[in-house]
Every structure is written in C-alpha cells, then in structure tokens.
Design a protein around this nucleic acid. Structure first.
Lengths: 226, 226
DNA sequence: AATTATGTGAACACAGTGTGACAGATTTGC
DNA sequence: GCAAATCTGTCACACTGTGTTCACATAATT
C-alpha cells in the first residue's frame, strides 16, 4: 500500500488528482489548507509515503509545511505544486528538501508519472525485501511479516520459506527441498518436509495457502496474484 | 511464428518498419491509430508476441493503449516509439510496463535489433512450456491448462500426458506406454492404460480428442494442426 | 450376426497427505 | 555448567485421493 497526502486549496484540483491517483491504486488523503496538512502530518506521518503540497495555501503555505516535515527529520518524499513563475521558487524548494517540483497547470498524467517515479525510487531502496500480497520477507533483518505483523519462525522454517521464495512457481519435490534446505548429505525421512510445511503454513496464517500441495510430487510456492 | 502488432499513424513509417520486420521473418499486424490498436488487442492479444506503439496517435495515444494492455494483466512485451523529448516520458513508459523505448527518428536496423533481443528474452522465458492449440503444459510448475484454465491431474495422468507429449504423432502400443510410464518391471493389466486414457481425455475436455485411438494397437497423440 | 476391441462406471485396496504427540537434540537464560 | 525452553525429526493415526481391476456397454471389424 502506498499512501499519498495531497494538500491543495482548490477543490477541483484535489478531486481531479486524487481520482487519477486512486485509479492507479494509491490511497489518497486530502487536506484543503496548510493547517489541515499539518494536522494530518502530525497524526500519521509514519503511514504516509508521499506528500504533494501546493505552495499557495491558506493558513500555512507549502514551504512552511515542508519546513515542518523536515524539522521532524522524516525523509518522506515531498512534491511541490506551484504556479509558473521564476526559477527561484524551484531552487528554493529543492533547498528545503523537496524531491520533485511540478508547475501549474499540469496534466494529471505527468503528475502520476512523477509519482510512479518516486514510488519506484523508494521501492528500489527496499532492495532485499521480498513482498507478495500480505507476506513480506526481509532477509537482511531475517524477519518475516504477514499483514504487517512479525511472525516468529524457527531457523528451519525460515530457511524453508526462503527456499520457497527463491523457487516461486516451481513444483518442488520433497527430495529437492530436502537437498536444498537440509543439505545433500542428509538422509532423513522425506516426510519431515511435510511436518515443517505444516508448521510453516500455520505460522503464515492467511499466507499459508501460498504453499500449494502438488499431490504425488511435492509442493509449490505461489506468489500472490496481482 | 512470432507476431508483431505495429501501431503508428504515419503510413510511411508503418510500411518501412513492417517491410523490414517481414524480411526478418516476423508476421506484422498494422494499426493506424490507437483505436485500431485497441481493437486488434481485444480480438487477438493471445496470438500477439510483441506490440510496438507510437506514443503520438489519434483516438488513443500510446500510453493509453499500453495501460489498456497492462490492465488485461498480459505480460506481452511492448516497445514504445516517441519523439525525443524530456526523460519524464521515458520514466513514465517504463513505469507503465513498457519493455523498450525507441526515440524517433530511428533506423530500422536498430529497431529490428531490439525486436530480436526481445524475442530472445521471451523464448528463453518460455523454456519448458509446451503449447499446442488450447492445451499448454508447464513442466516446471507441473501444471496443465486447457483454454487457459488449470486442470488438476493425478500423478499417473500427468505422467501419461507427458509421455504422449514427448511422443507426438507416434502410434504407441499399450505395452510401450506401460513400460514408459509405469516402468519396465511393472506387470499389470494392459487395459489399465485404457482407463487412464479415458480419465485423461475427460479431464482435457476439448483437448481430449488429441489422444486418438489406434484400433488394435494402442493410442496416438496428435498436436493441434497449425 | 458374430466377434473382437475399446469406452465407461463402480468397487476396493492402498498410497499420499495433514495432523498431533513425543523423544532426542539444540539453544537459551541464568 | 546446568536447567529450562525450544527446536527438530520421526512416528502413528485418520482421512482423502488414487490406481487397478472387473464387468458390462458400446463401437468397429469380419
């Protein structure tokens, strides 16, 4: 989920832009002036992924809101909207830590492209994190989350999950799995795999169904259909 | 066969490019505007292997067509043609899922090189997938689809189908089949094969007729006539 | 029409899988 | 270093799915 805070005093623009962004799958919070923007930022800055600020707003202008955000030492990306004037504005904005800058009037297409660019930049920053549906695996932190909540896995369960993640959509026989996870020199019961799969499924809760049984063969891990 | 849909409003470019591609052995469908492109895509997206879209087109522009394609959740490769402008366009295109990007004016040689690159990428991706008519067998996933819908096969049914696939157009006696699928040391009733063939035919639905009876001998699997 | 080959459905034994319990191995906390 | 807690691998049981055979129906061949 990618949440965007949109602050602009023109209702027409808010509606146009938010409709467009929603159609692209983003969640959009709206603020009609700098005051409302400040409030929303104070309340839920941690769950906001991008902030779009109009420069000219009642109560507090965009620069003030931007300054407020940066004073909180949060590096959430901020995009500024401003009427076409001299470039000084632009320089000013970048100095305060704006990430992008769009002059009014703009086409929603361009805006949405810039938003995507920022989202992408952010996601490649998340390198090493696997995500599929409600399941996310952070291999650096060695942490697995389902629906945002951390799930405690034992070492074997974790390694098994990593194996599945690295072999998505591939039917894996019990032998394949045993060789890969337990090592090629391990000669144990094939059904050990079953037991661990069972436990893993249980711990993954709603994501447990991502491990499919291929009857008479083994298992197959399926990333969420998007 | 590799089919390319080429959408560009300039007739001169269409002819130049399609001549060039045809000489390389590709089949080229042409669309003179975004509307025609949309129509062709709706009608026969499944038989198209690559789409080349001009960005500036009447009716619908290239981005809209691209969005339409992706909304169908098809990962057919798309190549965008655009006049040299700002990079934002490019970012936009890649975000929407364009696979390649060529700025006008371009040389047909370059275009055809890029097309070959995409074709290559695609084909190594298709490795291990058998397709014939409405039947497709993904041996990596150990999954069989008929008319796009997954068909659940038991292990024996699956192995039998794989045997048939590997022995297309060859009359196979029941003994051949029994030896190959059940193993040379299996001594069961020859008619067991019949039962499995019957079940397999039923599960394959419209593709069941691909398994032909060779009376007095055995069976023969026939891939779809193209 | 008689004969032979194949299609079809039912019955039954058995193999594959999910599941919980348990004992030994390993790790953790003190 | 010791006890407690946790993890791991195996097993047994229940249940469902699968393979095989058989008997009979239907179709093809003579």
């Amino acid at each position: 989920m990618f949440t965007i805070l949109l602050a602009d005093d023109e209702e027409r623009i808010r509606r146009l832009v938010s409709d467009f962004l929603r159609r692209d799958g983003y969640v959009v919070l709206q603020a009609a002036d700098g005051g409302q923007a400040m409030e929303l930022i104070d309340q839920r800055l941690n769950s906001i992924d991008l902030i779009i600020l109009d420069v000219m707003m009642p109560v507090y202008d965009g620069w003030s809101v931007l300054r407020h955000i940066r004073s909180k030492n949060k590096d959430v990306p901020v995009m500024m909207l401003t009427a076409r004037t001299e470039d000084t504005d632009e320089v000013f904005g970048f100095d305060l830590g704006a990430d992008d800058y769009i002059t009014k009037p703009f086409s929603p297409i361009v805006l949405s492209a810039r938003v995507r660019a920022i989202e992408k930049r952010r996601h490649q920053h998340d390198e090493g994190i696997y995500q599929s549906g409600a399941l996310s695996i952070n291999e650096v932190r060695r942490e697995v989350c389902v629906e945002g909540k951390t799930v405690e896995l034992t070492p074997k369960e974790y390694e098994l999950l990593i194996y599945f993640k690295n072999n998505q959509s591939i039917a894996a026989s019990r032998e394949n799995i045993l060789n890969a996870v337990w090592g090629y020199d391990y000669f144990g019961d094939l059904r050990t795999v079953d037991t661990h799969v069972k436990k893993l499924r249980a711990k993954l809760g709603p994501c447990g169904t991502m491990i499919e049984t291929v009857r008479g063969f083994g298992y197959r891990f399926e990333g969420a259909k998007t």
